[in-house]
Amino acid sequence: MRDFDQMGIVVDWLDACRKGDLATLLDLYADDAEIECTCNGTHLYRGRRELETYWGPRLNAFSSAGFGLEEINPVPNGVDLEYSVAGALRIHASFRFSPEGKIHSTLCVPARQGSQNCGAC
């Protein structure tokens, strides 16, 4: 059992997204964290600099549209989150954590959108 609140970290992640707070969002990730996004092909981003390049434009575009919490569930090795952008576009994100309580990896895929390009994650 981890001695940190994985669900709380994901809620903090969502709050940072809602506020468009890139610095806080990046601070939730481990230094060697990675994001694998499969919304428009498969793209892998590693380390703070690449995560900043990934999240910067997305936060600017989508924080004003609104991030909504649809579902959040603990899973054996982390937390699964389904969130919406602008109340309609749904994204499924799976979070895994470092022993220090930072997000180590995120896998995002479009939710309920088939093979359509979600463009949000």
Rank of each mutant, 00 (worst) to 15 (best):
F62L: 01
D3A: 03
K102M: 11
K102V: 07
L28W: 02
N40T: 10
G47Y: 00
F67D: 02
I35F: 01
E71M: 09
V75W: 05
A30N: 04
I35E: 03
A93Q: 02
A33M: 01
W55R: 04
T53A: 13
R46P: 09
E82W: 14
Q113W: 11
E50G: 06
M7R: 02
C39Q: 11
A88I: 07
L28S: 08
M1A: 14
G56R: 14
G119H: 13
G41C: 08
T24Y: 01
I103M: 00
C108I: 02
E100P: 04
A16L: 01
V85K: 04
G47Q: 03
H104D: 07
S84Y: 02
M1G: 14
M1D: 06
G20I: 02
A61S: 15
D15Y: 10
L44Y: 13
S64L: 08
R48K: 15
H43G: 09
T53K: 12
N60M: 06
D3Y: 07
T24W: 04
S63Y: 03
G68V: 00
A120G: 08
D21C: 03
R112A: 10
W13I: 03
H104M: 06
N73E: 10
S115P: 11
W13R: 04
F67Y: 11
K19Y: 06
A61Q: 14
A86C: 03
A61W: 06
R90N: 09
L107T: 13
A120V: 15
P76M: 06
R112G: 13
D12W: 03
L28F: 07
C39F: 09
D3E: 11
A23I: 09
Y54L: 08
I103G: 00
S94F: 06
I72D: 04
I72Y: 03
G101I: 01
G41W: 09
L81N: 05
A111Y: 11
A65N: 07
D80V: 10
A65K: 12
T106Q: 13
L44H: 14
N40S: 15
A88T: 14
A33L: 08
D27V: 04
M1V: 05
D5V: 01
P76S: 11
G68Q: 02
E71Y: 08
V10I: 00
